[in-house]
Amino acid sequence: MSRLGHQLERFGLLLVWLAVIALFGAMRPDTFLSWSNFSSIFGSEAVLVIVTLGLIIPLTAGDFDLSIAQTLTFVSMLTALLSARMGVELGYVIPIALAAGACVGLVNGAITLYFRVHSLIVTLGVGTFLHGVTLWMSDSQTISGVSRALMQYVIINRIAGIPISFYYAIALAALVWYLLSYTAFGQQLLFTGRGRDVGRLTGVAVGRVRMSAFVASGVLGAIAGILYTGTTGSANPTSGTTLLLPAFAAAFLGATCIKPGRFNAWGSVIAVYFLVTGINGLSVLGFRTYVHDLFYGGALVVAVMISQLVSGRKERVL
C-alpha cells in the first residue's frame, strides 16, 4: 500500500469526524456549532471514553468484558450510597469504589480462567448479576445528594471551558496508550490475544496476563462509575447499562484507525467523539432518541465489517 493510502487509513476516521462536524455545522450553524454544545459533549461523554478504554484491554488479550457497563452502574450506585446515605468521606469512598471494580474483574478472570469458560458468557452472567445487586441495594430508586465536592472535581470545574472529566479521560487514554504501546505488558497482552500459544511457548504467563486485563477493565469501569455519579450528583440504577453497546462500537471503530487492525487508545477516543457528534448533530436536526440505537448499532456492524475487510486484505483472520 502507498504511504498516502496508509496515512489515509490511519486518519480516515478523524477526517470523517471533521466532515460530520462540517456537515452539521453548515446545516445548523447556531445550535450545533456552538462552543457550549461541544464542551458539553466533551465533558459528558468522558465516561463513555473510559468505558471504551476499559474494554480494549481485555479485547487486546482476546477476551470480552460484557460486564463493564454493569460494573459502572454498580460502582456509581455504591458511590452514591456511601456518600449520600452513609455520609462517608470522599477520601474513603473512592478507594472503596475502585476496589469494588477490581473485585469484579477478579471474579470475571477467576471464573474464565479456572473453569475455562468463554469470557463472553462469564461476563454476561456476572454483569447481569451485578445489575441485580445494584437494583436491590438502591431499591430501584435514583439516589441523589452526593457530596458536592465530587461534582466539583468532575463536571463543575472547567479548564478552557471544558469540564475537568474530559481531561481525566484524556489522561487515562494516554495511560492506556502507553501501556499498550510502550510496555512489555502491552506486548504480552498482544500475544495473548493474537498468538496465545506462541506467547505461552515463549514464556508469557498468559493466565496472569488475562487476569490482569480483567482487573484493569474492572478498575476502569469503576472510575467511569465514579465520574458517572459525579456528572449528575446522583446515581441511577439503570441508565449506565446502555453504555455497553456504544463502547463496543467505539472500540471496534477505533481499531480501524490510528493503528489499523489493533484496538488502540487514541482510535477509541476519536471513535467515541465521532459517534456522539453524529448523534448530537442528528438530535439538533430534530431526530428523536431512536437515532441512538440506529447509529450505535449501525456503527458497530460497520466497524467490524471494515476490520474484516482490512484483515482480509492482509490475509489473516482476527
Binding site: Q187, F191, G195, G199, L201, G203, V204
Partner: peptide, 19 residues
C-alpha cells in the same frame, strides 16, 4: 505455535524479551 502471523517481525522476534 511459532509465529503470531499478523504481528510484525519485530514483535515476534523480540517476544522473548517482552515475555
Amino acid at each position: 505455535l511459532g509465529l503470531a502471523l499478523d504481528l510484525s517481525l519485530t514483535e515476534n522476534a523480540m517476544l522473548p524479551m517482552a515475555a
